[in-house]
Simulated scan of single mutants.
Amino acid sequence: MTATVSVALVTYRRPEQLRTALQSVRNLDHPAPGYDWTTTIVVDNDPDQSAKAVCAEFADLPGFSYRVQDRPGIAAARNLVLDVCGTDFVGFFDDDEEVSPSWLRALTQRQAATGAAAVVGPVEYRYEQPPPAWVTATATWASESPAPDADAGWLTTNNALLQATIAQRLTDGRAAAFDDEFGFDGEDYQLGLRLQRDGFRIAFAPDAAATEWVPPHRTTRQAIIRRLLRDGNIMSRADLSLRRGPAKLLVRARHIVVGAARVGGGLFRGLFRLPRGGLAGAASGARTSLIGAGQMLGAVNVVVSSHRRRA
């Protein structure tokens, strides 16, 4: 039996980048045998419909559909994709990315080989302008890849194939698959934790490559600090969102302790090993400390987001 697949993007006021992303969709190879790409969906999270004109240029893509989600947030927009897709699987990537021609084929091949509920691929980050050396030293924009043939330990929908039927029923009493509590950051990571908790696999497809272009305003000191704080913040908040009763108190305490250890260890590495480790040692220490600080903030219900929407 053939499985149907949608390709989906969520966008917000980035029409030129969206055009580049959709052009890469136009260049996609067919998915693996046994999968049929039937639908292409763009959800515009801008009530002013800033993506509408660009989307009209790509109406020839398979089953193209342009939708508007007035409710702010990535979670709400991704949930709309799941509501309207009508397919067995959805391939997600972001509107500031490009995917390789083999992207969809590689994701579906890996899903066929593993039966995983989700498959993620690598994202290569490229800078629009060369950043300061300390930015690259923090590895803030470094790609994550598990060992060959290993499962991924995370779900990130900036490059993922998700089994829609599983996600749609994995609500746990929530209104939808992607939790609105994580409306702008971490909704995918939290869904991944729920998938793994319930015994579903998240596989990794090394050949399903995507490229994200990082603009200069995301390499400033303030932006890097917020992103690293956010990473730790999502870690603890997502974990706590799955807990109930006394277990939640214990997990909260664990994140505070582990976060504090990261802060202390990072400061030690960054300050006391600076003469020997140089910039790399200092940047690595700062990264660890900031992630730990974000983890502690999340443990006491303080939300840190890297998304600041323009009015």
Score class of each variant (00 low, 15 high):
residue 1 M to Q: 09
residue 3 A to L: 14
residue 5 V to I: 09
residue 6 S to Q: 08
residue 11 T to I: 01
residue 16 E to K: 07
residue 19 R to N: 01
residue 19 R to C: 11
residue 19 R to K: 13
residue 20 T to P: 00
residue 21 A to D: 09
residue 23 Q to A: 14
residue 24 S to C: 12
residue 26 R to Y: 11
residue 29 D to T: 08
residue 31 P to D: 02
residue 31 P to Q: 09
residue 32 A to N: 06
residue 33 P to K: 09
residue 38 T to M: 03
residue 43 V to P: 06
residue 49 Q to F: 01
residue 50 S to A: 13
residue 55 C to H: 06
residue 62 P to A: 05
residue 67 R to S: 10
residue 70 D to Y: 01
residue 79 N to Q: 14
residue 80 L to D: 02
residue 84 V to I: 13
residue 87 T to Y: 10
residue 88 D to W: 05
residue 98 E to I: 04
residue 98 E to D: 07
residue 99 V to D: 06
residue 100 S to N: 03
residue 103 W to V: 11
residue 107 L to A: 05
residue 114 T to Q: 07
residue 117 A to K: 08
residue 118 A to E: 06
residue 124 E to R: 07
residue 129 Q to P: 00
residue 129 Q to N: 02
residue 138 T to R: 06
residue 139 A to Y: 05
residue 146 P to M: 10
residue 148 P to H: 12
residue 148 P to R: 10
residue 151 D to I: 09
residue 152 A to M: 12
residue 152 A to Q: 06
residue 163 Q to W: 02
residue 163 Q to N: 15
residue 165 T to K: 11
residue 167 A to L: 05
residue 170 L to K: 08
residue 171 T to L: 05
residue 175 A to M: 00
residue 179 D to P: 10
residue 184 F to P: 01
residue 184 F to D: 12
residue 187 E to H: 15
residue 188 D to G: 14
residue 189 Y to S: 06
residue 191 L to H: 04
residue 193 L to G: 01
residue 193 L to S: 04
residue 194 R to Q: 10
residue 195 L to Q: 03
residue 201 R to S: 15
residue 203 A to Y: 06
residue 205 A to S: 14
residue 205 A to I: 14
residue 208 A to R: 10
residue 209 A to E: 11
residue 209 A to V: 13
residue 212 E to S: 14
residue 212 E to C: 13
residue 213 W to C: 02
residue 214 V to I: 15
residue 215 P to G: 00
residue 221 R to F: 12
residue 226 R to E: 08
residue 226 R to F: 03
residue 227 R to S: 14
residue 232 G to C: 07
residue 236 S to D: 03
residue 237 R to T: 04
residue 249 L to E: 14
residue 255 H to V: 03
residue 262 R to C: 08
residue 265 G to W: 10
residue 269 R to S: 05
residue 274 L to F: 14
residue 276 R to C: 01
residue 277 G to N: 03
residue 285 G to T: 04
residue 288 T to C: 06
residue 289 S to W: 08
residue 297 L to F: 08
residue 300 V to N: 03
residue 303 V to H: 11
residue 305 S to D: 10
residue 306 S to F: 03
residue 308 R to P: 00
residue 310 R to N: 14
